[in-house]
Design a protein around this nucleic acid. Structure first.
Lengths: 205, 205, 205, 205
DNA sequence: GATGAATGAGCGTTCATTCAT
DNA sequence: GATGAATGAACGCTCATTCAT
């Protein structure tokens, strides 16, 4: 159908803009980038950008939120494919690190700031990012609770545990992004798993 | 002496500007804030700001770097006052959390971004922040190494251990900043210490 | 073609801006004039000026250099149409005076200064003006040399002769610009020609 | 007397400021120079400049007008010391060129503009410069008239003759200022005298 | 009298957004 | 629908002038 093809093409163009915007924003930050640059890089006229996005802020927010949605969707899917808690934890780490490794440009935005755009003027994005974060933490908590019931994990506050696990993953990713010449980011998985599950204390002492 | 009093007053005014700038930048971000606002909030004329700081970027960088220097100095001093490694680790966590609790406005800047200013144009600040971070990690590594020699800690890569510890602290601080009505941030110390030293696995299983 | 019409319109608008700029700059000088005034006088928005010229300095320089190029082109063309040296000299004076008379606004800029803009910051314009001057002097020298070979003129340094002729013309023009109610500037031609060719000494004495 | 010494000192300080101002203005033009620079160069505080001069414009005007008054006074004195017209003309040229040679910094201001300050805002200076110019022309006319009566000079309009003579002198000075490595400016005297008195035509033809 | 820190109006320039084509 | 020239509010910064010390 005609309308369908239209929509398909619309989405392709929209995606092309978002792809270029991601590259440019990640390199230079929200405020330093101009609409003219994005238009130029994506091969559209300035005015055309406004057919896909209401304004600059919306273009930026959309780019961020869609990518994060994708990340959470991918991670959750892979985690859910595991039955046991230990496998879920390992997969969580692995899937997150892999996603970062596939999207280094994008995550450099968060190196720069969990988003420089978390200013007053962009409070909608700010709130969505925070909500997304807590939703992800809740998702992690969910299977950590099972681990506690199982006896695999100690009875610690699940929110704090989930938040700790997430912070270990993100911190490894951020350091890797800072020095991109090092070995594969995924290779950090075992260390994160080890330190999260076993801690650093010498229990044999 | 006359000159001394001049200098003292100069420093007081400079500090007053930095204090207001911290509040305003942390609420609204680097780019959304105007020099006129900072001037107004600190009770100076626009032109007067330029007697203390070369330009907006310099005012911002100075504010960030001086506060971080202070934080690292305070933390290091307190940590060094401890003799044993376990005490050092506990003090590290405690001192860091306390500093954040005393400077909530400031650290909201880092919630927004490790600094939104880590864009191309502010690469000097960017590099100093990164250097400061790695220096702090090295400081932590230093006493973790002693812990390994002692047999208190397992033989894990010290950089990764230090970075993990730091990330647990920062993550707790960030969450607390997001929901500032909760109980004291310092109360998170025991959890961080627990999870870092013992991990989450049930070792009695 | 579409593109051609665009370009034509672009050039018309550009010329309209230059025309207004000439009036305003000649009345008040480079530094006293604001971009807002030029925008207002030429019926454009401030931002629009920057589509035609990189910055204020470029707008000013362009205005000056294009007019001078035009003047030199016109003068040279008319001079070259003459065969004999005496005719060339007379035409040089005439064409120069006529051009000034048709562009009084513009030349008032040079009354104010050979251009106030010959300051450090505008050294590119400065050098071009100087180059243009010496090029014009060289052009004059060229036919004066022929006049020497012919025996029409005495064997004097040609550069100094050319420079003297030029200064007589410019000085007449400048005085006329200072008191614009007097008779036609071109009427000074004969005096300049007389004094240059015959000198003021009473040879019969 | 006390008051006398005060006044003497006042005038010395005032002259010191003018001397430095001349150097700085001639190098960079009126608008590019700041009061702070002049204060600094002359070893006074900014505020102190305002005890000698009402404002920046007044400082600039004073510097220009006093120097020109000095020039005209020197030239007139030397010219008046001559009895015959031919000697007066030669002395006029010589004294003018000498004065320029002794004050190259100052005259570069006029290279840049007969004064960039001839803008609307400085109309007082503008008018004084014009008046001074016409007064000087009148002074020259005066002895040229005698030359006509004597039979030394042809019966040409005296204003135009005087203005032509002045322009030949100024033009030689300006060219020399543009290329300061050449031989002494005063050496141009003979050429100017020659061309003014004898013209360039080959009368023997 | 001498100082120079403080002032704030005013500048050149940018760029998100609009809208006539 | 697609375009990109036109817009003008808003910014960072400068500097002549003032005035408390």
């Amino acid at each position: 159908m005609r309308a369908e093809r239209k929509e398909r093409e619309f989405n392709l163009r929209r995606a092309a803009i978002l792809e270029q915007a991601e590259k440019i924003f990640s390199a230079r930050g929200y405020y330093s980038v101009t609409m003219a640059e994005i238009a130029n890089a994506s091969g559209f006229a300035i005015g055309s950008l406004y057919q896909f996005f209401d304004n600059k802020e919306n273009l930026y927010s959309t780019m961020i939120l869609e990518k994060l949605d994708l990340m959470f969707a991918e991670i959750n899917q892979e985690v859910n494919a595991n039955k046991d808690v230990a496998g879920k934890i390992e997969t969580l780490i692995n899937a997150h690190l892999q996603f970062v490794e596939k999207n280094t440009d994008f995550f450099r935005i968060f190196l720069r700031g969990q988003s420089e755009a978390l200013s007053e003027t962009m409070s909608a994005l700010r709130q969505k990012l925070i909500d997304g974060y807590f939703e992800h933490i809740a998702f992690i908590e969910n299977f950590l609770k099972t681990g506690i019931k199982n006896g695999l994990l100690r009875k610690l506050p699940t929110h704090d545990m989930a938040s700790a696990l997430f912070s270990l993953i993100r911190s490894a990713a951020n350091e890797w992004l800072l020095e991109p010449t090092k070995e594969s980011l995924v290779s950090k998985k075992d260390f994160i798993l080890d330190i999260f599950l076993n801690g650093v204390k010498n229990h044999e002492q």
